[in-house]
């Protein structure tokens, strides 16, 4: 059982909770192979997707997971903030309409935490600014464990925009908790200060970070950064930091490559390497639905329990 009614971040979870989520995901994996890919467990439960910043993969993944468990899903299309309504007012409105679980993505770090304090419904953080994106990290951990059989002792390189990507932070917390050796490789402008305090190694070259890696997780680098002062240019980033065939050769021969978010080919990862990673990425996306099913189930069942 999860201790909290909400899933706000990996840092709030202890190791047994993380392992329980991964184990329950494993049990649900066969559902996607059935003729009828639907379970009745969350019949009568209502889930709302409240996405203040765009996301295709995460939003659809939650939608698939809800539908596979027979929950009713409300996708909030037009954002209430456009009408000047606060996040909490919106959530209270949803709660009054009987919503049991709110999946929220927001540009401000801490918005889901604030929301969770003010409503009884469960809140799942689907990415809050640069802060956390716990389900994505759990998906990555699950995909690694499923493919390589373990996480403890593995060398994992995190590349790309570590500063802004919520998933990269959650990946880091999650993999360190589960005993992986995490090495971050990115320009200093894309690494938050003090990151090494979280138990990872910080490098400013990709070559050092991917050396002998079992797993490489690349994070999307926004195409906008070339226009501000974070990067001299996208071309320069690509030249020095893109995961290309030469840099990939420094990792273990059967290295597993995962990616969070939409791929910018030729920026954080070359088209050739992205193609090579395709089977892993497909597995990561499929696991995303199953893992979110496990999380929705566990949160929905936890409710109403003393």
């Amino acid at each position: 059982m999860l201790k909290s009614k909400d899933l706000l971040g990996i840092r709030e979870l202890d190791i047994p909770e993380i392992e329980l989520i991964l184990d329950q995901t494993a049990k649900l994996e066969e559902v996607s192979t059935r003729a009828v890919k639907k379970l009745p467990a969350l019949r009568g439960k209502i889930v709302a997707n409240l996405f203040y910043t765009p996301s295709t993969r995460t939003r659809i993944s939650f939608e698939r997971a809800c539908k596979a468990l027979s929950a009713d899903l409300i996708n909030i299309g037009q954002l209430p903030s456009a009408l000047g309504e606060t996040l909490t007012d919106t959530a209270l409105t949803l709660q009054a309409m009987g919503v049991d679980i709110i999946v929220v993505r927001h540009h401000l770090a801490g918005a889901p935490v604030q929301l969770a304090r003010n409503i009884e419904a469960s809140v799942i953080n689907a990415g809050d600014g640069a802060h956390e994106h716990p389900t994505q990290a759990l998906v990555d951990a699950y995909t690694i464990r499923r493919t390589l059989g373990r996480i403890e002792g593995l060398k994992v390189a995190l590349l790309g925009d570590i500063r802004h990507a919520s998933a990269a932070k959650s990946d880091l917390y999650c993999l360190v908790k589960l005993g992986a050796q995490v090495a971050v490789g990115a320009p200093s402008t894309l690494i938050p200060e003090g990151l090494s305090e979280f138990g990872c190694q910080v490098f400013h070259t990709v070559e050092e970070a991917v050396d002998a890696a079992d797993v490489i997780i690349t994070t999307r680098v926004s195409l906008d950064y070339g226009n501000d002062k974070l990067l001299p240019s996208l071309r320069e980033y690509s030249r020095f930091y893109s995961l290309n065939t030469e840099r990939l050769a420094l990792a273990k021969p059967d290295v597993m490559i995962l990616h969070s978010g939409a791929i910018n080919r030729g920026v954080e990862i070359t088209a050739t390497v992205a193609e090579r990673a395709r089977p892993h990425l497909q597995r990561q996306i499929a696991a995303g639905v199953t893992l979110r099913m496990a999380v929705l189930y566990m949160l929905a069942m936890g409710k109403g329990v003393a």
Binding site: M1, L20, Q24, A26, K27, L28, E30, V31, L39, P40, A41, G44, L69, A294, Y297, M298, M301, G302, G304, V305, A306
Partner: peptide, 24 residues
């Protein structure tokens, strides 16, 4: 078959029934 997710009392158990693997 693990029937956990098909139980009709799933919302009134008072604890989280852990899901087992269905293998068919």
């Amino acid at each position: 078959v693990d029937i956990t997710l098909y139980r009709d009392d799933i919302h009134r158990l008072g604890y989280l029934p852990e899901v087992g693997a269905t293998e068919i």
